[in-house]
Design a protein around this nucleic acid. Structure first.
Length: 522
RNA sequence: GCCCCCAUCGUCUAGUGGCCCAGGAUGCAGGAUUCUCAGUCCUGAGACAGGGGUUCAAAUCCCCUUGGGGGUACCA
């Protein structure tokens, strides 16, 4: 088998789409699995869309997931340049070859005419085919029109008397009747190539062995296959993988504003949008309007682990067997094959992604977990930057106490009670009412217990635990009669880590100050 | 309109003619543990779109219907 070479060709749009990332991942995986090369090529032929700096976020996303490329921006390679905007000569040369061979033609019909033809065909319920009026023109006439400055485009002359087929790695044999394919424009009047053409020229010149892309490109493949043949190139292998659909739907996950608004309300996606609106403002990253779950950066910024996203993306449309879910990148790379890619579209499932995240978070060593949480605390301004040794050890203790409650790194931001001043601690109104104000004996018990708290030694979880149990026994009460009130008084919240961890974390002074404050608020 | 693709629990999937009255995961419901929440551990509900064939035997093969999706650009 010749060297496997795959490629991903993003347009510089200013951000990396999660669905595109999944396509890139499959390409990367196939190349790595086979010890081949993965090429990154920038599709910036649509010049109006091309934006400065629009590439960096895409490269960043690759960096975050550690998908390295062997050729492309920043690294070069022997089949460069890797920006289509710089490959004009290659396209011109290819177009000229087609023109000279009579496999392409200059079309002088203006867009309005073509559109009218198309509308007429639809009216008659017939497939649209170009009328090819320009083909009737004599060479002299064409030269004349050009001399007049009449605009024209180059169209590929589709051989209508045959069919084309590909043997797709995931879809099997797919065949098209060329008599139903209209002549595609392959080059604009200004010499800029269209996608279908540029991609063929590039894939051939870059010796891409496997074109792995989303299913939405399947129809394009007919024209591309024809183009490969017309240009005298061998056909690469194709694998049209299912696209990533919006949660709970079969529709392609879209980046369009209108769709985003729809996703925001969808039950499955809502969770992630809400998270963004809660977390991003705290760390100065805007909100869900600037960073949403269609973008890869969202996952990084909200505190996902790259290995979790890697795992989740790999399982979207691909599986190893009937039970393996949690897989490392090494395992996936080792076992990734095209024949295990499914055919039907795969909806992104935020819950499932979260489940992978929980797994991989659980796999993370404590110090790395702390490292992941720290930036959220500094960005929120809850701790000083740079982080002192004391702060770091405090956060380490907190993260330990929090345990599996920290699923995303940004989850630490749900525990502001460990960072606010005692006077600024907000009591959850409902909880305060239910646990402190309403029960008759709560405030009295709290007052008594406060006295013991002042003298317990050492002020550590185990000793505090023993002491409270002794207190409960002396008073002949149930632990529930005091502990809930204590929790609300000290943390302001009805839920959290183990009570004694909370107390130890806060320290004697702060616990007492907070109990006093709660008592005063009764 | 025309062309193409797809069709197993809500979702992601296993299943390549008998191992499947369909397995796993996730989500959901109930229970256990506990000071709460998270977690963990049990338990439960939950799918082969429909109809015809082929075959001793079909979720698996073929056909039709229906449904869903994608493409149809001087976008990528």
């Amino acid at each position: 088998m010749p060297t496997v070479r795959t490629r991903f060709a993003p347009s510089p749009t200013g951000y990396m789409h999660i669905g595109g990332m999944r396509t890139a991942l499959f390409n990367w995986l196939w190349a790595r699995h086979n010890g081949g090369q993965f090429v990154l090529r920038i599709d910036d032929t649509d010049r109006e869309r091309n934006v400065e700096d629009a590439l960096q976020p895409i490269l960043d996303a690759f960096g975050w997931l550690e998908l390295d490329w062997d050729e492309g921006p920043e690294v070069g390679g022997e089949y460069g340049p890797y920006f289509q905007s710089q490959r004009g000569d290659l396209y011109t040369e290819a177009v000229n070859r087609l023109l000279a061979a009579g496999k392409a033609y200059e079309d002088f019909d203006p867009p309005e005419v073509v559109q009218a033809d198309r509308a007429a065909a639809e009216q008659e319920k017939q497939p649209y085919l170009n009328i090819r009026r320009s083909l009737e023109l004599s060479e002299a006439k064409r030269d004349d029109l050009k001399a007049q400055g009449k605009p024209y485009v180059i169209r590929f002359l589709v051989p209508r008397d045959r069919s084309v087929a590909i043997d797709d790695h995931v879809r099997g044999r797919v065949e098209w009747d060329c008599g139903l394919i209209s002549d595609p424009v392959i080059m604009r009047g200004d010499g800029s190539p269209l996608y279908n053409f540029a991609t063929v020229v590039d894939d051939a010149q870059m010796k891409i062995s496997h074109v792995i892309r989303a299913e939405e490109h399947l129809t394009n493949t007919a024209v591309q296959a024809l183009l490969f043949q017309a240009l005298g190139f061998d056909l690469p292998e194709f694998a049209h993988i299912p696209f990533v659909a919006a949660p709970g739907s079969k529709e392609k996950l879209s980046k369009r504003e209108k769709q985003i608004e729809k996703y925001r309300k969808s039950p499955q996606f809502k969770k992630l949008f809400d998270l963004a609106d809660r977390v991003f403002p705290l760390i100065g990253e805007g909100d869900s309007a600037t960073l949403n779950p269609v973008m890869v950066a969202y996952y990084e910024k909200i505190g996902f682990l790259p290995q979790a996203v890697f795992n989740g993306l790999a399982r979207l449309g691909w599986s190893y067997d009937d039970k393996t879910e949690n897989m490392s990148r090494e395992f996936i790379t080792e076992n990734f094959t095209l024949d295990r890619v499914v055919k039907s579209s795969a909806g992104l499932d935020p819950d499932k992604l979260l489940a992978y995240q929980e797994y991989w978070m659980g796999d993370l060593p404590l110090d790395e977990k702390v490292n992941g949480c720290l930036p959220y605390l500094t960005k929120a301004g809850w701790i000083t930057d740079p982080v002192t040794e004391d702060t770091r050890s405090f956060v380490t203790r907190l993260v330990t106490a929090l345990g599996e409650r920290v699923k995303l790194f940004s989850d630490v931001l749900s525990y502001d009670e460990y960072f606010v001043d005692d006077e600024a601690l907000a009591f959850d109104e409902k909880a305060f009412e239910k646990r402190i104000r309403k029960p008759d004996e709560a405030s009295q018990l709290l007052g008594e217990y406060r006295g013991r708290l002042a003298t317990v030694e050492p002020f550590e979880a185990a000793a505090l635990d023993a002491d409270l149990h002794a207190f409960v026994e002396e008073k002949d009460i149930k632990i529930g009669q005091i502990i809930h009130a204590l929790r609300v008084a000290v943390t302001g919240k009805p839920a959290g880590p183990g009570m004694f961890d909370c107390l130890a974390l806060l320290g004697r002074e702060r616990c007492i100050a907070r109990i006093d404050r709660a008592l005063a608020a009764c």
